[in-house]
């Protein structure tokens, strides 16, 4: 079953700007899905339309088979949203924010209290439940928005840049939390600027650029399209300059460290043969993080050049 289906979704703002130009997208139930794109590509507009915060110009949105126009109550009940910007009452207490949201979804108060306790505990906010929300740190505010989005038990959770501006420790704990949530059956759609985040978490990915989906496939299939990989090499002896190796882009990062872009056509064996021939001994090798980033820029740049 499809958790989300967008058909020919268009959005033209009052000033004439065409933010979405016929988005077609399908997300399977249970998936962990990344929606990627550069700034202004249309990610937040797409999410805004799905969450009923932005009015679409045309097209259809179906959530678990429910049409958002005709069966809006059922469709909306399936969605939980964690927006990019803080959007709770900064003068309200943490626990009350979660309970209020449950009320908006018609969750009975007893059940709402049980669920609020569950999510606030899991997101390490239970001790702060009586604290006014504006006093929370940035990471806590993001976790509060996740707890609020989950209190009505949505089948589809949409997170718009959930880890923007939070430190690495909080980001890693949020990743673990989201993985667990997905394993328990919640379909998750994620937009992020941290492409490593998408690579770590998501099984499928769509790239949106200038209001259109330019790629929608599995993460592994997308990564297979990389025509090169970048590796960091640790050397036994220091070098004064980067060695010249035909077909490879080599950069001397430190006297004992090289960064090498390895075309898949040539492969690592060719690289090591060339390095050995030049008397350079490699004692360590690791892939550089951000392969998706590399691919992402290839795809977006390729489209722009084609246009």
């Amino acid at each position: 079953m499809l958790a989300l289906r967008l058909k020919n979704l268009r959005k033209v703002y009052d000033n004439g700007f065409e933010a979405l130009r016929g988005i077609e997208l399908e997300v399977e139930q249970g998936d962990f899905f990344a929606l990627l794109g550069p700034n202004g590509a249309g990610k937040s507009t797409t999410i805004g339309i799905i969450a009923s915060l932005v009015k679409k110009t045309s097209g259809t949105v179906e959530v678990f088979g429910y049409d958002l126009d005709r069966q809006w109550e059922q469709a909306k009940s399936c969605i939980g949203l964690v927006p990019q910007e803080i959007n709770f009452n900064q003068f309200e207490k943490v626990g009350q924010i979660v309970l209020n949201q449950a009320g908006y979804y018609g969750v009975p108060s007893g059940l709402a209290r049980v669920r609020a306790e569950k999510w606030l505990k899991q997101l390490e906010l239970w001790d702060r439940r009586d604290q006014v929300s504006r006093r929370l740190s940035g990471g806590m505010k993001r976790r509060l928005m996740i707890a609020r989005a989950l209190v009505h038990a949505p089948k589809l959770l949409i997170l718009d840049e959930p880890t923007a501006g939070v430190d690495i420790e909080v980001r890693r704990s949020m990743w673990a939390f989201l993985r667990r949530l997905n394993q328990e059956g919640t379909t998750i759609i994620l937009t992020t600027h941290y492409l490593e985040e998408a690579e770590q978490l998501c099984r499928h990915v769509a790239i949106i650029d200038r209001g259109q989906i330019i790629e929608s496939t599995s993460m592994s299939a997308l990564l297979d399209k990389l025509d090169s990989d970048t590796f960091c090499l640790d050397l036994r002896q220091p070098l004064m300059a980067a060695p010249e190796i035909s077909g490879f882009a080599v950069e001397l990062v430190e006297p004992r460290a090289l960064r090498v872009e390895v075309p898949r056509l040539l492969g690592l064996n060719t690289l090591f043969a060339e390095l050995s021939a030049q008397g350079i001994e490699v004692i360590g090798l690791r892939p550089q993080e951000g392969r998706l980033e590399q691919l992402f820029f290839q795809r977006v740049r390729g489209k722009k050049e084609a246009a």
């Binding site: 009923s52 969605i79 910007e85 709770f88």
Partner: peptide, 17 residues
């Protein structure tokens, strides 16, 4: 207006209300 300004009106707009 406060709900609009702080954007927590969105809590109601996304809900099936």
């Amino acid at each position: 207006f406060s709900a609009k300004f702080q954007r927590h009106i969105e809590e109601m707009l996304i809900a099936p209300m």
